[in-house]
Nucleic acid binder design. Structure first.
Lengths: 152, 152
DNA sequence: ACTAAATTGTTCGCTAGCTAACCAAATCGC
DNA sequence: GCGATTTGGTTAGCTAGCGAACAATTTAGT
């Protein structure tokens, strides 16, 4: 621990993320649902059926990660995955009847978390957090050589 | 996106954490080492051999997680794990000769990350980030019913 | 038209986190 | 001294993330 704010800001970002995931997981565990699985359902409920590739950008995760999440949801019978007849590469995702039934029973964990975590915190302070972390994230991403849109 | 800072602060905490892990992983990949594995080595290098249980509090992770990390390091021959003759339950961890050799070759990824991420950011702003996130984390942790020191 | 390149998804193998359940050893209470 | 509890570690099974490599399909280039 070098104990300057330069590393503890990052360390707290990690701790906060893990804590929020722990609360989400604990909230959703009775329904046998993971946090990201919940988020996929959320998108399908709010935006209707969509191509799997469209979820990638929304969730900001990589293809293999989404593939695993979707297959878990299909296994549980909450989501249907069918090949798009217009483009046989794509898969169309939609929520099933069982998924809709489950969704109605679920609480809204996101709201719960955000309200307890940042309730009463000044808008200015939250804006500072966003500014510092987003800038830091951008710098880190620029550091990575594995750019997605690179030529050769 | 509800576009208030109440959720984007948390979302950026996640993005920052994942970005920093991506950079750490990319930095350590040539050495076939994960970020947490690196951190275990760091502790063993700086504090000498220690009981596995002492690493739990330092790393702030759960027993099974550490168990997996240690076994990966043992498998790679970087760390030795022997039973403590004084207390046969405990395991003493120490870095091996091969571990020491590897360590000398490694860059210092933590410094790299922190310098690029938060370089030039005002101390006040970093302090705000720490304050907001640590308070948020504490609130979330209080929300969890699975307290560690519970009876019955 | 036909080959080369890009897109979409999956699979494999890894790191890293968790809970629940378990074993073995040590310690506590009586 | 002995049974019950606590402590330290592991195993099993799960979520969630990644890169590399692959197959299938579509699109682009010539």
């Amino acid at each position: 621990m070098t104990s300057s704010n330069h590393n503890s800001a990052g360390a707290w970002a990690k701790k906060y993320y893990l804590a929020s995931r722990a609360v989400l997981d604990a909230t959703l565990r009775p329904y046998d649902l993971g946090a990201s699985q919940w988020y996929v359902l959320w998108h399908l409920i709010h935006d209707g059926p969509m191509a799997q590739r469209d979820l990638l950008s929304r969730l900001q995760i990589e293809k293999p990660t989404l593939s695993a999440i979707v297959s878990a949801l299909v296994r549980k019978g909450l989501v249907a995955q069918v090949t798009d007849p217009q483009d046989l590469r794509q898969k169309i995702l939609s929520i099933t009847a069982a998924g809709r039934v489950l969704w109605k029973k679920l609480p809204d964990p996101i709201d719960l978390i955000l309200k307890t975590a940042f309730q009463g915190v000044a808008e200015d302070d939250l804006a500072t957090v966003v500014r510092v972390l987003s800038q830091g994230t951008e710098r880190l991403n620029n550091l990575l050589p594995s750019q997605k849109g690179r030529k050769s």
